[in-house]
């Protein structure tokens, strides 16, 4: 049982690290703000979530587990809300999403023309 927990937690930790890394690279390499926010919020939810779950398997029952669950909940709520607020503020301040020409003709209503 211990070994099973260890293996599961390792898988979670490695997967979380991988998502964090992809998110970080995306944050650096994507061309404009709204695609960057997409990359960053992946690290916020998936990466952080997986790493926290991985740590939870190591923690065992007790106060530590409760605190980890608390951190996970907080970061899920706060991270997503902060991303939303940022995107909204950026949009309000006049930053328009950049749209590649081929995309809007095929996927009907995805980006609005206005």
């Amino acid at each position: 049982m211990e070994i099973l927990f260890d293996i599961v937690s390792w898988i979670c930790l490695v997967a979380g690290s991988f998502f964090c890394l992809t998110g970080g690279i995306g944050l650096l390499r994507f061309p404009e703000f709204f695609s960057r926010i997409h990359a960053a919020s992946i690290t916020d939810t998936l990466g952080a979530g997986l790493i926290m779950i991985g740590l939870m398997f190591q923690a065992g029952w007790g106060l530590v587990l409760a605190k980890l669950i608390l951190i996970l909940l907080f970061s899920l709520i706060a991270g997503t809300t902060a991303s939303h607020a940022m995107a909204k503020a950026a949009l309000k301040s006049g930053l328009q999403p950049q749209v590649v020409g081929t995309m809007d003709s095929e996927t009907g209503g995805a980006p609005s023309k206005s």
Binding site: R36, A40, D44, I51, A59, M86, L95
Partner: peptide, 30 residues
Amino acid sequence: TLYDRILAVNNFGTKTVLLVAVMGFLYGRP
């Protein structure tokens, strides 16, 4: 843009949280 900076600061903050948690386990000090 300014919002890129804010986004990066926010991301840095969440990563700090993760790092602190992982460090706690690394040193065995929960």
